[in-house]
C-alpha cells in the first residue's frame, strides 16, 4: 500500500500590510521582480493597485455596450413586430411603424439589458460566486475585508519557490507572512 501524502500543497504565500501605500509598493515590487500570478486584497478599492499588477483593461464596458445595443434593437423589434405585422391597428391612418412612440420602451429595454450585463458580467468575470477559497484558510485573512491589506504570490507562478518568495516578501516589510494551503 502506498503511503498517503499528507503534506498539503501550497496555494501561495500571503503577506499582510498595515497600510494601502505599503501594499501598493509591495505589489509594484513583486511585479517588477517578475512575479505574474499575484493578487492583492483590500477592504476598499485602491487606485492603481490592479494596474501595477499588470491589469490594464476589462472587457466589461464592451459587453455592456453590446447588451445596450442589443436591448435597443430588440426593444424596438419587440414593438415593431406586434404593431406592424401581428396586430396592425389603423388609427386615423397614422403610420403603423410609429417610431417616435417606440423610443421610450426601446430606451428602457436597452438600459435594463446593459445594467444587468454590467452586474452579471462583473460577477461572472470575477469568478464569483465562490463561497470557498483557499485564502480563507489563512487566519489573518478575515481582516482583508476589514482593515488590513494583503498581497499573495501564488504557487502556480512559474517563478514560484516558497523560500525565495518568503525572502522577497520579507523585503517589503509586511506585518506577517503566511504560507497558505491549497
Amino acid at each position: 500500500m502506498e503511503a498517503v501524502d499528507n503534506t498539503p500543497e501550497t496555494y501561495g504565500v500571503l503577506a499582510e500590510y498595515e497600510t494601502p501605500e505599503a501594499l501598493l509598493d509591495a505589489a509594484e515590487k513583486a511585479y517588477a521582480a517578475g512575479y505574474r500570478k499575484i493578487d492583492a486584497y483590500s477592504p476598499y478599492p485602491i487606485e492603481g493597485l490592479a494596474e501595477v499588477m499588470g491589469v490594464k483593461k476589462t472587457i466589461l464596458p464592451a459587453l455592456v455596450l453590446g447588451a445596450g445595443l442589443t436591448g435597443a434593437i430588440g426593444g424596438y423589434l419587440m414593438q415593431y413586430v406586434p404593431s406592424v405585422i401581428l396586430y396592425p391597428l389603423n388609427v386615423g391612418a397614422r403610420p403603423l411603424n410609429s417610431w417616435p412612440a417606440f423610443i421610450p420602451i426601446s430606451f428602457e429595454v436597452a438600459i435594463l439589458l446593459a445594467a444587468s450585463t454590467a452586474v452579471i458580467g462583473m460577477i461572472a468575470l470575477n469568478g464569483l460566486p465562490r463561497p470557498y477559497h483557499p485564502l480563507f484558510n489563512a487566519e489573518s485573512f478575515e481582516r482583508a475585508t476589514q482593515d488590513r491589506f494583503f498581497l499573495c504570490i501564488e504557487a502556480d507562478d512559474t517563478q514560484f519557490d516558497s523560500a525565495a518568495v518568503q525572502t522577497f516578501l520579507e523585503s517589503t516589510t509586511p506585518i506577517s507572512i503566511t504560507e497558505v494551503e491549497a
Partner: peptide, 18 residues
C-alpha cells in the same frame, strides 16, 4: 464569496461606474 481582490475591485469599480 467576495474577498476584496484587486482584480475584482478593478472590474467592480468599472461596473459601478457603468
Amino acid at each position: 464569496g467576495w474577498r476584496g481582490s484587486a482584480r475584482h475591485w478593478f472590474r467592480y469599480e468599472m461596473a459601478y461606474l457603468l
